[in-house]
């Protein structure tokens, strides 16, 4: 039993999960029962996948020991590329896949530059943040193209499905991808390599892990997920605005960190990143329902980030200090 408590205390996502539970109860009370109502849950579940998909990619990359600040710009570039191609007469599928390929290419460039020139990914992706955003505006020509909704299988992405129309189709995409990436990280040799690469690079190299390829793969997964998330948002909004996703890169890092992912790599879980993303959504939504001045939103996210990290390290220390049978 003590062993079990010790193990769960050292789980990085524990603090965030506890916070989430507390906040749900808090907002449910504050909003006089509106928060958990079907109508409100529809709103929360409808928006959540967009940010959560980005957080999944960022979390994976951070566990691998790298960083991506360009996800917010990629989030806008991918659907913009799709929309522009569609106005040129391309069909939806080739246009969308090309948009995602652009993301994969950006991820590859991020990773390749970072490794080839041994520079911090913070710098590479900061540069990419500006470049991808600029590209988005350039290819839009200043006027965001209209999406022809009748050519797009909306039901596959954003229409409401499920019991009581609780979820949008995007939620199913999110669940599928989350399960896939979580399994990839925890149950495959690739996941083992990601954790080793981020956990202690010299050991990973000495054991013959192709750590550069592993990192580039993570950069690419991260970018593609950001592009997919942006595409889903644009399909929901009906028009690709060049400004979407601004600030998303930091919110995604906050989500990952709130969920227990270490900035130094090696520690973290996909579940944690998702819990972090849900927490941010819940706070956003809960504050509106509780009629708090919404300008406090960013304050709350900031405070939460610090609180979660402090809480996490405290819990982990308690967990480590807990005496069980000797190893």
């Amino acid at each position: 039993m003590r062993r079990l408590i010790k193990i769960s205390l050292q789980k990085p996502e524990l603090a965030a999960a506890l916070l989430l539970l507390c906040l749900i109860i808090f907002f449910q009370v504050m909003s006089q029962g509106v928060f958990l109502s079907l109508a409100n849950m529809r709103g929360v579940f409808g928006l959540m996948p967009e940010m959560a998909l980005v957080a999944i990619g960022v979390t994976l990359l951070m566990i691998c020991g790298e960083f991506d600040l360009s996800v917010g710009s990629v989030f806008a570039l991918s659907p913009m590329a799709m929309a522009v191609l569609m106005t040129m007469g391309w069909g939806f599928w080739p246009a969308m896949l090309t948009g995602l390929l652009v993301c994969a290419a950006i991820g590859f460039i991020n990773g390749w530059l970072t490794i080839k020139f041994a520079i911090p990914s913070f710098i590479t992706t900061l540069g990419m943040l500006f470049m991808a955003r600029s590209l988005t505006i350039v290819i839009s020509g200043g006027f965001p193209p209209r999406l022809k909704a009748d050519e797009i299988p909306m039901w596959l992405f954003v229409e409401f499905v499920g019991p009581g129309n609780l979820f949008r189709a995007s939620f199913l995409w999110f669940v599928g991808i989350a399960v896939l990436v979580a399994l990839l990280l925890s149950k495959t040799n690739f996941g083992n390599w990601v954790r080793a690469t981020g956990g202690f690079l010299p050991a990973a190299n000495a054991m013959g892990i192709p750590s550069s390829k592993v990192k580039i793969a993570c950069f690419m997964i991260c970018s593609v997920l950001a592009g997919l998330a942006g595409t889903i948002q644009v399909l929901r909004l009906g028009s690709p605005l060049p400004s979407i996703g601004e600030g998303l890169e930091l919110a995604a890092v906050a989500a990952a960190v709130i969920g227990g992912t270490s900035l130094l790599g090696g520690i973290g879980s996909i579940t944690g990143g998702i819990i972090g993303a849900i927490l941010i959504r819940v706070i956003d939504n809960g504050m509106v329902l509780s009629q708090v001045n919404s300008n406090w939103f960013k304050f709350a996210i900031g405070a939460l980030t610090i609180l979660a990290v402090v809480g996490n390290s405290w819990l982990r220390k308690r967990g480590r200090a807990m005496k069980v049978e000797t190893v």
């Binding site: 083992n192 954790r195 080793a196 956990g199």
Partner: peptide
């Protein structure tokens, strides 16, 4: 190696088979 060729925050079983899972 002198510095450990082990990843500290991974389990023994995982470390045993890094790269040769």
């Amino acid at each position: 190696y002198q510095y450990n060729s082990m990843v500290p925050n991974m389990s023994i079983a995982r470390n045993m088979f890094i790269g040769r899972e």
